[in-house]
């Protein structure tokens, strides 16, 4: 094995710029799809709480689709498939404005929304029924009971799962390279093909992903611990 020399990669301005650009795009895609996923998950949860069976089935179908179809295939379906169905004007506009990244954000966001909504729903279901009874017995309205008693507990219950799925979302951003998004993993291959320093480049990427994943997991552990005093009865 040849000598390990990180400097070749890190001190070369071209390579450095490429890797930084990749890192930035990874973070942008991850953050945007996280926001989309969270928002959509709240919508899904609200719809799920409606008393209509149609609503329940619709949400269940949505979750089922996104959990059973591989994320890579979902990305492809959006970028190659659905984009083709759009009106030509919209397609042109998209092609001028980073279509790949937009579709990646949409696909990843929609996919993770399914997981987030299930996590929140599980968080809700973990609350003992006595809680809502106690709240109603004290005279709180349904909305009041939800706001002061149920939802705060649901969120606390859901935090470990939400954090884990956030880390998954972050890692899934790497799949976007398959549809041409110039994120970190894509850039890694580019730099590798130009520098032939595979080991070093891969190491840089690995460190990047590890650092952020561990940061996220650490933040999650902190959050969970802060709420543990208030957690289980």
């Amino acid at each position: 094995m040849h000598d390990f020399n990180l400097a070749v990669i890190l001190q070369n301005p071209e390579f450095r710029a490429m890797l930084i650009a990749g890192a930035e795009l990874t973070l942008v895609v991850a953050v945007l799809s996280w926001l989309l996923a969270m928002l959509l998950a709240l919508v899904l949860l609200t719809v799920r709480l409606l008393p209509s069976t149609l609503a329940q089935r619709a949400v269940a179908a949505y979750v089922s689709y996104h959990r059973n179809v591989p994320t890579l295939v979902q990305l492809m379906l959006w970028y190659f498939g659905i984009s083709n169905l759009l009106p030509q004007g919209l397609q042109d506009w998209l092609n001028d404005h980073d279509a790949e990244a937009i579709f990646a954000v949409i696909a990843l966001g929609l996919c993770q929304a399914a997981y987030f909504s299930e996590d929140m729903r599980s968080g809700l279901r973990a609350i003992p029924p006595g809680q809502i009874e106690a709240a109603r017995a004290l005279g709180h309205s349904y909305v009041g009971a939800m706001r002061y008693v149920i939802l705060p507990q649901a969120i606390r219950n859901a935090i470990p799962a939400l954090v884990n799925h956030t880390v998954s979302l972050f890692k899934n951003s790497s799949l976007a390279m398959a549809i041409g998004v110039a994120e970190m993993t894509h850039m890694v291959r580019e730099v590798e093909s130009r520098s032939f320093r595979t080991f070093e480049v891969y190491t840089v990427a690995t460190v990047f992903y590890l650092v952020f994943s561990l940061l996220l997991m650490g933040a999650g552990a902190l959050l969970a611990r802060q709420y543990r005093a208030a957690a289980a009865r």
Binding site: S174, L175, V188, Y202, Y209, L214, M217
Partner: peptide
């Protein structure tokens, strides 16, 4: 175990593709 959980599968595949022949 923690390490592998923090890295995307795609990157691990690339690593293996590179390391195994070596």
């Amino acid at each position: 175990v923690y390490g592998l959980r923090g890295v995307p599968l795609l990157l691990i595949i690339l690593w293996t593709y590179f390391l195994l022949p070596v």
